[in-house]
């Protein structure tokens, strides 16, 4: 069965960008919903990760729901419903729900596409797609050093706990965490400086060399052509 994991990350990034752009520009529910079958197929092709992706969607939507509620109370429109002293905007609710739908579709598509490639291969693909080198390097180093920074943070918290520190709702606790974060920032700055020196020591001259390269396969071509076909069909049908 077809799996998104075998598709070239460059192709996935391009198709993802195209569909995200299409979904984001959908003016109404029916246009946005016409992308739903493609999103569902992507979820199936992400294989075994559906539950994880739906959990992610649930977390993201809890934030988006606040936005919908805010729009219901703040969006100015002639169609309103009076509930006691409150005036609720019907158009606000409609736009809020459309926004929720579009965000959910883009989020699910992004998650199903990108979860089937390692973070590094995605950055690598962005590099191949001629994204600014500095941006790719920042993304790459952020990902590379997240583990190290996390370990340092945990070590500092352990060290504090070993000296009787118990986090509680007090000024002292906040001050302790502020010190830990400040230390992390200073350490990260110093580490960045040393890493840069280490790179210079191995012939770095501003361009990060790439060791593994991608090559387009038959599946990639089929995937990109069928995705483009679907996208064009939606555009022609709806616009």
């Amino acid at each position: 069965m077809f799996s998104l994991a075998v598709i070239d990350p460059r192709v996935k990034v391009v198709v993802l960008f195209l569909f995200s752009w299409g979904i984001a520009l959908s003016p109404d529910f029916s246009t946005a919903l016409s992308y739903l079958p493609f999103v569902c197929l992507s979820l199936v092709a992400a294989k075994g990760r559906i539950l994880k992706l739906l959990k992610l969607l649930f977390v993201a939507n809890t934030f988006l729901l606040f936005l919908v509620v805010t729009m219901v109370f703040t969006y100015e429109s002639p169609r309103t419903v009076k509930v006691g002293a409150l005036s609720l905007s019907v158009d606000g609710l409609v736009y809020g729900l459309l926004l929720l739908l579009k965000s959910s579709l883009i989020l699910l598509l992004t998650a199903s596409f990108l979860s089937t490639s390692s973070a590094f291969t995605v950055f690598h693909a962005l590099h191949h797609l001629r994204l600014p080198a500095n941006l790719c390097q920042i993304l790459f180093f952020t990902y590379r050093y997240v583990h190290t920074v996390k370990e340092e943070y945990e070590t500092m918290v352990k060290a504090a706990k070993c000296r009787g520190f118990r986090p509680e709702n007090s000024v002292r606790t906040y001050r302790t965490f502020a010190n830990i974060v400040a230390n992390l920032l200073v350490k990260s700055y110093k580490r960045a400086d040393r890493v840069y020196k280490a790179m210079l020591c191995r012939g770095f001259r501003g361009t990060f060399p790439v060791y593994h390269h991608f090559s387009l396969k038959r599946e990639d071509i089929i995937f990109v052509v069928s995705s483009l076909f679907y996208f064009t069909a939606v555009v022609l049908w709806k616009f």
Partner: peptide, 13 residues
Amino acid sequence: YVFQNPDDQLFSL
């Protein structure tokens, strides 16, 4: 030059 702390030197994935 081999650095004192390997974490400073090893930056690839």
